[in-house]
Design a protein around this nucleic acid. Sequence first.
DNA 1: GAATAATACTTTGTATACAAAATCAACCCA
DNA 2: TGGGTTGATTTTGTATACAAAGTATTATTC
Lengths: 218, 218
Amino acid sequence: MDRNGTQTRESTGQRIESVLLDDIAAGLLQPGERLDETKLASRFGVSRTPVREALSRLTAQGVLVTGDKRGVRVAQYSREELAQMFEAMQEIESICARLANQRLTLLARSEIESAQDDCRTAAEAADRIAYIRANEALHFAIYRATDNPYIFELASDFRRKTGPFRAKKLETKEDLVASVASHEDLLAKIFSGDSQVAVDGMRKHMTESFMRVLAANS
Amino acid sequence: MDRNGTQTRESTGQRIESVLLDDIAAGLLQPGERLDETKLASRFGVSRTPVREALSRLTAQGVLVTGDKRGVRVAQYSREELAQMFEAMQEIESICARLANQRLTLLARSEIESAQDDCRTAAEAADRIAYIRANEALHFAIYRATDNPYIFELASDFRRKTGPFRAKKLETKEDLVASVASHEDLLAKIFSGDSQVAVDGMRKHMTESFMRVLAANS
DNA sequence: GAATAATACTTTGTATACAAAATCAACCCA
DNA sequence: TGGGTTGATTTTGTATACAAAGTATTATTC
């Protein structure tokens, strides 16, 4: 019953949850879009029960919201909400920058630099999708460098929620190249000897990033 | 069907979720304790379906974990994990302290002080449960004073997850009184003119608090 | 008496069925 | 024509039933 031969450890509900999460992160499901239990059930060829379970959990994660009207929808934010969200994200990423700076191991540094290389490659090839993936990996690598799984999870959660909006700001090759340059600068600061420099660098990076996001979501 | 007369907007599943969350936060359900769907269903006088929904969402929130063995359990952490968790919490609470300090409105300050009054009353009455509730309310008031709902949610989530462990450290009346005094000091710093003082105050408070938690969970 | 196999009993996951609530639509009356 | 009301339809929430996967227990054999 498992397509890759291994024993299926995850239930149908969990499978649906991760597929949906993927669809949302990739922008296949737009913010505000409504999700119909029955339609999803028939799409996955199951009953409503596991679908409901998946939707329920995604709602608990804040990826979906139970709208004031009917049905659950992909979370959607006003500019005001977006601003608050990015403020929170900026704070968290700043913490990550400081901790990463203070605790950086060679392995962590190598992972970060490797991700940055992937970003550069994707940007030069103007491959938007690959760039977004590499960019995510880079930030995850920084989170991981904090050596604190809870902070990692925290930061990752935010990144998931803001994913659809950040994606919008990276349209042209110039956007990608500019982003790489911004990261180059950021990493130098994180690798510096001064954690305050790292924090300030991350703050600056996030502010720049957010300005582009706001411009793209106006 | 609603105790406060207003129309009941929440489903049975949501009701069960919040009751369970409350039980966990209050330490009524111990870390590691197993939750049986069928037993809960009969306890609440409902079928397994809404219970499963509640458990599923609580799992998504990280309050419960689906153990390697059978059934879901209240999340349980090693000392190492606890330390990492509190480190994350300290960082977040520090952010809250800074933002609350910078943005404090009269209303927010009044809410915080009112919660502190409740803490004092409960401590003097040596009412452990009431104290825990009031203490939670106090911290939530500080989170709310950041005027950022995402940071509020973030901090609240952590507080939920660490609830059962923090509960343990408050056994005797002396514990409660000491906690009130610690908060008194903290609030003075949050209400001060200097946000760095607020941050340092919160760091100190969290460190003290954590030390007691670690001692109680050893 | 110990180890392994077989069986019974939990427990979990999914499906189906049904009831209640909300939305939509048509209709009627002013 | 407009506002509201009633009826129909969709949608959500809950219950029950069933099947599959574990876990424990008993029995049997060496």
